Computed example of a mutant assay.
Amino acid sequence: MTEPVPVPELGHGAAPADRARLDRALDRLAVTLRGMTARADEAQCECHWGSPEELALLKLPDTELDLDLLHRTWSAPDWSDHGAVLRRVLPQFARVLTGGLGAYAYDIDKVGISFHRAAWQQWPAPQSAAVGEFLHAWWAHALLTPDPAVPVHELLPLCAEASADIGPWLAVWDDLRHPVADRHLTDMIDQWEWDLLEDALPWRSWFVWSEEETESVRTELTAWLAREAPARLRATGASAELRHGARLLGLPHADRWEDPHAPRHRYA
């Protein structure tokens, strides 16, 4: 049996109640998915994925994987039953995720796709409820943590792709009137302003939405920011330039660039 893998820190400065909710969600996930395994006939390419001995570990319940094998497992796109594989590793994977993936943080943009590919919302009700509560608890924890292990501008796309819906995550933020949550919104607009002003979704949507659905997600996100951002940006003391950028999101695309406060530099 492999040695237990240390659980990373969840981030710094979260409110105790939200940290407690996330801990409960992780515990619930572990209890609900206890005993899960990959299918007995699940196969993988030895040259591209790993050894038969490593594959055999996925068919044993409740055995911790080393972090490299865990990464290869959740990120592989070609399991015959991705849902069963994700159920097998999710108790450990969820705890690793809340620490930011460590050396594998470069693949954070594939996590939501892995959840989506597993069709977790179609799992038996206790399992899907446990996954949903984990994602919501993680999101609420991040919004109230000054320095979350996964930045909010990376976690929002993850949750949206995992659930194929951005609305519930914006609704949580909408109801959360807190200086830390406002600071995250300021930082996110600073990261995404150029893409949003050019009517582009500020992350690549891998395999989750059609072109029409992607446009709908972008429209919903832009409308929410145009409504929510001005007051929150003022509260955080954001620059006048950033406040104007948020205001421009509420204008039709053609009108943005005629505005006297439109950014002078535009990406090609």
Rank of each mutant, 00 (worst) to 15 (best):
E241I: 01
D199E: 15
L65R: 05
V31F: 09
D18E: 13
A14N: 02
E161T: 15
G132E: 12
S205I: 05
E133N: 11
D255E: 15
P151A: 12
H178E: 15
Q44D: 13
D175Q: 13
A43L: 10
R21F: 08
P61K: 01
R88K: 13
R24N: 13
L26A: 13
A181W: 05
V217P: 00
D190A: 14
D174T: 14
G245H: 08
K59I: 09
W173V: 04
P126M: 08
P126K: 08
A76E: 11
R87I: 05
V96P: 02
D165L: 03
D66N: 14
A118D: 04
P77T: 10
A17K: 03
A262R: 06
A246D: 09
A231L: 06
I166N: 06
V217F: 04
A268V: 11
T73P: 00
D147R: 13
L57S: 03
H184R: 00
R204P: 00
T32L: 09
A262F: 08
A14L: 08
D68N: 10
P230K: 06
Q92N: 09
W192P: 02
P16A: 06
A17V: 04
D107N: 14
M36I: 02
S80T: 11
F207R: 12
S239K: 03
P6H: 03
G102S: 03
D195T: 04
R21V: 11
A20Y: 00
A235K: 03
G35W: 06
G237M: 03
A130F: 08
L58N: 10
V89A: 07
R256Y: 10
L196R: 05
D41H: 06
P202G: 05
A229E: 05
I189K: 04
R256F: 07
P6C: 07
P91F: 03
A25W: 02
A162K: 09
L67S: 13
L155Y: 07
W49P: 07
L22E: 04
T98N: 11
V172R: 13
A235H: 04
L135K: 01
V111M: 07
W206N: 14
Q44A: 14
R87W: 03
A94H: 05
S163I: 00
D18S: 09
M188A: 15
H116Q: 10
R21K: 13
S114L: 09
E212F: 10
L249N: 11
L57H: 01
L33N: 04
A235Q: 04
T98Q: 08
R39F: 02
T37Q: 15
R72W: 11
A235P: 01
L58T: 09
H82Y: 15
R39A: 15
G102I: 04
G245D: 05
V31D: 14
P202M: 06
W120F: 15
R227I: 00
W49N: 11
A94E: 03
L251V: 08
H71E: 14
W139H: 12
A140W: 11
P8M: 10
D109N: 13
T37P: 00
W194F: 12
H253F: 10
D187R: 14
